[in-house]
């Protein structure tokens, strides 16, 4: 018995979200008196793999191969299920992100393991196994009971936190599962990476703009604010529909669901579909010239005013603080 964690890398590097995932799994493993085994798929240096020990993995299964440079649902989930069998894992944990959502259902169906996606904390009980997740696009929580012996969970980022790293090196083991019988059905034609920008999923602070910003040009003020804060930028749906900002920045029910420490909403009215994507943020600051805008109902702090005057002042005040 062990807990298997699929630790995803981005171009050979593990990100904070992966460390949080391991910290979460480690806490569960302590209660169950078991170990955390990490599974890494794709090209990663040994020194990087060993780092996973700092966050609680005792062992890392390292799978590399030519055809593993892009996510193929069937191939990758076959690797996961083979690892589950090899390790006798009872609980399989992945991030509730693009790849976790792609793989967890296939793994679940293949193993007949009950799946709970987007869990926001540790189980409230292990026997029976009951765990909490967000439902109805963040409007409510459900306590889900898993009936099967094997369980698959995807963990909602920023709902646990990264544990203090310990000084431990994970044992890295080469893992070459039999995957030759999985026929290759997909061919990667092209990859386009967002470069030179902090990604929404990596950011502690997110500054977001809505239709109230009135034009694509006005987003330069928001970019400047993001720059001084070390934040990522986001937007409401109409803004990405208009093409003022890329689709990758759209947050809400039909875009990304995020949970940064601080979310600054500027010129966003706070429609229910928008709020669903951001309400798990620890703190929300709203800037809006309409004192009755619904966004203030979910904000911790608000400024009633025009973004054209508020944003430059904010930028100046933050610069002053940062300068010490």
């Amino acid at each position: 018995m062990s807990i298997l964690v699929y630790t995803e890398n981005r171009e050979g590097i593990f990100k904070k979200a992966t460390f949080e995932l391991l910290s979460y799994a480690k806490e569960m493993a302590k209660t169950l008196n078991t170990n955390v085994v990490a599974l890494s798929i794709g090209q990663v240096e040994n020194s990087e793999l060993e780092k996973l020990g700092n966050y609680g993995a005792t062992k890392v299964l390292n799978t590399q191969g030519n055809n593993l440079s892009f996510l193929d649902n069937k191939l990758f989930s076959k690797i996961v299920t083979t690892a589950v069998e090899k390790e006798g894992a009872q609980i399989i944990i992945m991030a509730n992100n693009i790849s976790g959502k792609a793989l967890s259902p296939r793994v679940s169906a293949s193993l007949k393991a009950g799946l709970v996606t987007g869990v926001v904390g540790l189980p409230s009980s292990y026997e029976p196994f009951v765990i909490k997740k967000l439902v109805f696009t963040s409007k409510a929580f459900s306590n889900v009971k898993v009936n099967s012996a094997l369980k698959v969970l995807t963990f909602a980022q920023n709902s646990f936190g990264v544990a203090e790293p310990i000084n431990a090196v994970a044992h890295v083991e080469t893992f070459n599962p039999q995957i030759n019988d999985v026929p290759v059905k997909n061919r990667l034609i092209e990859t386009n990476r967002i470069t030179g920008k902090l990604l929404l999923t990596d950011a502690e602070i997110v500054v977001s703009g809505g239709r109230g910003l009135k034009s694509a040009e006005n987003f330069s003020l928001l970019e400047e604010l993001a720059g001084v804060l070390g934040a990522a930028t986001a937007c409401s749906r109409p803004v990405s529909d208009e093409g003022w900002r890329p689709h990758s920045e759209h947050v809400g029910q039909t875009g990304k669901i995020i949970a940064p420490v601080l979310y600054i909403a500027c010129g966003i009215s706070g429609a229910i579909q928008h709020v669903g994507g951001i309400s798990s943020s620890k703190f929300i600051v709203a800037i809006n010239n309409d004192k009755d805008a619904p966004i203030f109902e979910i904000a911790d702090y608000g400024i009633v005013g025009d973004f054209k005057t508020v944003l430059p002042e904010m930028i100046a005040a933050i610069k002053e603080i940062k300068a010490g």
């Binding site: 967890s104 259902p105 679940s108 996606t117 439902v135 995807t154």
Partner: peptide, 13 residues
């Protein structure tokens, strides 16, 4: 409703 992100992948499997 239940935001499972699961039916598609399970069906494929």
């Amino acid at each position: 409703d239940y935001n499972g992100s699961a039916v598609g992948g399970m069906l494929a499997e």
